[in-house]
Design a protein around this nucleic acid. Structure first.
Lengths: 158, 158
DNA sequence: TCTTGCTACGATATATCGTAACGACTATGC
DNA sequence: GCATAGTCGTTACGATATATCGTAGCAAGA
């Protein structure tokens, strides 16, 4: 259910695999995976933490790919709209998706100590939010579920 | 489990009752329920929707209670820290608590049409977030659970 | 009385996050 | 080719949030 970002793993594969998968999906769906969009995805994939739009923009600027906020926000909008990245509301920041396979309803675990973020999956229509909504006659269109705390590594005594 | 904000109710009682309850709790706990803090709570209670800090600040300014951002943010920090109000991450905005009774883990239902927000309750250690966290060995300190969609009134055909 | 510590308040300045609007370029389908 | 959708680059601005410094009031204790 969760991926392994809190544990050791082949991180280069995260990046190359992620980019290749998205490239393929875009080709299948007739989406334009432009240079800027690809670069933003790479930037997001380069860390298992959420990055602010301006932090991303700084890197784009260094790469000569655009230096004004709308450049970053447009690429992020594309990526989030198509499920290749997610916005972390709690942090006003973005992270690459780690469950590209299917339409999904992510749950995020945010470590306040090392800043790493893990994406887990589960159906929001079940569970507490769904129950609360049903009781109130509320139709859910989007659910934000983000937990903040300590990851296994950071909660261990030093 | 949910309160009645999506339905008709005696709204004056929401305000006066809310202020009185918080006043009592502050007295019990030795907290200073100052004029600005009380006014901000009243402002939040005056609507069942989330309000931005600057919207609140505009009202404070009109009341002669302070006109600079920190005035509003400090009052909001007090109210949220002690559980008298909550921050809605999805909206970068704040709402009065409607479950003052006990320590709690709120779930919010946000109507994108009429902007009303309802606070429901449930234990985050159970359910999907808790399950995901347990599986990852993650220690939850705070959980954000916000659903966006349509309330009963707004989802009915016109 | 004087000092100390604490909490709250006021004000300035700045950091951070996000979008509206416009004109130019480019990919794609006809 | 040509029309049109989509994309890009830039300017300007709006919205949200915090850092920092200084002050006022109050209570405890020397």
């Amino acid at each position: 259910m969760t991926d392994q970002a809190f544990e050791a793993h082949d991180h280069d594969a995260c990046i190359s695999g992620g980019v290749a998968s998205v490239e393929q999906i875009c080709a299948d769906r007739g989406l334009q995976f432009t240079r800027t969009r690809q670069r933003v995805l790479e930037i997001l994939l380069s860390e298992h933490k959420a990055m602010g739009a301006y932090e991303i923009l700084d890197i784009l600027r260094a790469d000569g790919l655009g230096s004004q906020p709308p450049v970053a926000y447009r690429a992020l909008e594309f990526l989030t709209k198509h499920g290749f990245a997610h916005r972390i509301e709690r942090l006003n920041a973005f992270i690459a998706c780690s469950h590209l396979e299917d339409p999904h309803a992510p749950v995020f675990l945010i470590c306040r100590s090392c800043d790493r973020v893990v994406e887990a999956e589960s159906d929001p229509s079940k569970g507490e939010i769904g129950r609360a909504a049903k009781q109130a006659g509320f139709v859910i269109e989007r659910a934000v579920r983000e937990a903040e705390g300590l990851c296994p590594g950071c909660s261990k005594p030093a």
